[in-house]
């Protein structure tokens, strides 16, 4: 442990001197990575080729054979089954949840880091206690609240509780990001006579960007994956999100596996596009947000 501390003491990061040359060969990790690659690639290959198979071929061919007569029917059929609506709903829910969480969490984290009062301390403890409380435990009361607000079967009904249960982790991560803004920076601004609104705008907001990116991704993935809240809080076909839609295809297709796999593939494409677009941001954001 003391060796560890010694290393850390001498290792104040100097960004200019990033590692260009990593440790030479790392054979075990390399082999492990290769195996993992196969583990990741095979199922994905499976859903793609199965999505292009006809129903007959699904029965006759092996799971990993290339489709002999690839067909687009499964994909085109999806458009008649409300797929674009589901996708749109999921994207709206995800965007709404991320926006709401960030808008609530960043000011709160700012207050938590810069305001030592008892009231703020207490609120922080509440969020900390809520960190691991699972949403499904309180689904019934949530349901009652949503109906009281007359939001049942709207997308807002999904966004509101999803955001609420993402708040604790968002606040914790953002708090640790903000902690690392050196005190001197705050003080310099105060000397210039800036009030907290200006400090927030010109200092907190720009410097917390990496944290915001990683929280955004984490919360966004949660919302995108959300299953229980949409299940219980929406009903109509027009409000159905992707995850429920996928699950529903299982019965709509009359157990048509290729159709189902085509739906899985299509449901992934928008996120894949987002990912390819924002990959760089993501990596640097993650490093800053969770690496501390």
């Amino acid at each position: 442990m003391s060796a560890d501390l010694a290393v850390r003491a001498t290792a104040k990061p100097s960004p200019a001197r990033r590692a260009r040359r990593r440790r030479g060969r790392n054979l075990p990790a390399g082999i492990l990575s290769a195996i993992w690659l196969v583990i990741v690639a095979v199922p994905i290959y499976y859903i793609v080729v199965t999505g292009f198979r006809s129903q007959d071929a699904y029965v006759e061919q092996g799971p990993l054979d290339l489709p002999s007569n690839p067909t687009l029917d499964n994909f085109t059929a999806l458009f008649g089954l409300g797929f674009p609506t589901y996708l749109g709903n999921s994207l709206l829910v995800t965007a709404g949840t991320v926006a709401l969480v960030l808008a609530l969490a960043l000011p709160a984290a700012y207050a938590i880091v810069r305001n030592p009062s008892r009231k703020v301390k207490l609120s922080f403890s509440v969020f900390l206690l809520g960190l691991a409380v699972p949403a499904q435990a309180v689904i019934v009361p949530i349901y009652l609240i949503i109906t009281r607000l007359e939001l049942y079967d709207t997308l807002r009904a999904v966004i509101l509780p999803t955001a609420a249960f993402s708040l604790p982790i968002a606040i914790v991560v953002l708090t640790s990001t903000l902690r690392d803004i050196p005190n001197e920076l705050y003080e310099a601004m105060t000397v210039d006579g800036a009030d907290s609104r200006r400090v927030f705008r010109t200092l907190v907001l720009p410097l917390s960007r990496p944290g915001l990116v990683s929280v955004g991704i984490f919360v966004g993935l949660n919302a995108w994956n959300g299953f229980l809240f949409p299940l219980v809080l929406t009903q109509s076909d027009e409000r159905r999100v992707m995850t429920l839609g996928l699950w529903n295809f299982q019965s709509q297709f009359g157990t048509n596996v290729p159709g189902l796999m085509a739906a899985v593939v299509l449901s992934t494409l928008p996120v894949l596009a987002l990912y390819l677009f924002g990959r760089r941001h993501l990596l640097s954001g993650l490093a800053a947000g969770f690496g501390k």
Binding site: L104, A105, P107, A108, Y110, A111, I112, R114, N115, S117, K119, V120, S123, V126, F127, G130, I142, I145, L160, P161, A163, A164, F165, L167, P168, I171, Y186, M189, T190, A194, D195, S196, V199, F200
Partner: peptide, 18 residues
């Protein structure tokens, strides 16, 4: 320059309600 409790209030109220 210290942000007041009001900065944390929306998040706290929101989490309390839901």
């Amino acid at each position: 320059a210290r942000p007041g409790f009001v900065w944390a209030a929306p998040a706290v109220l929101y989490f309390a309600a839901l």
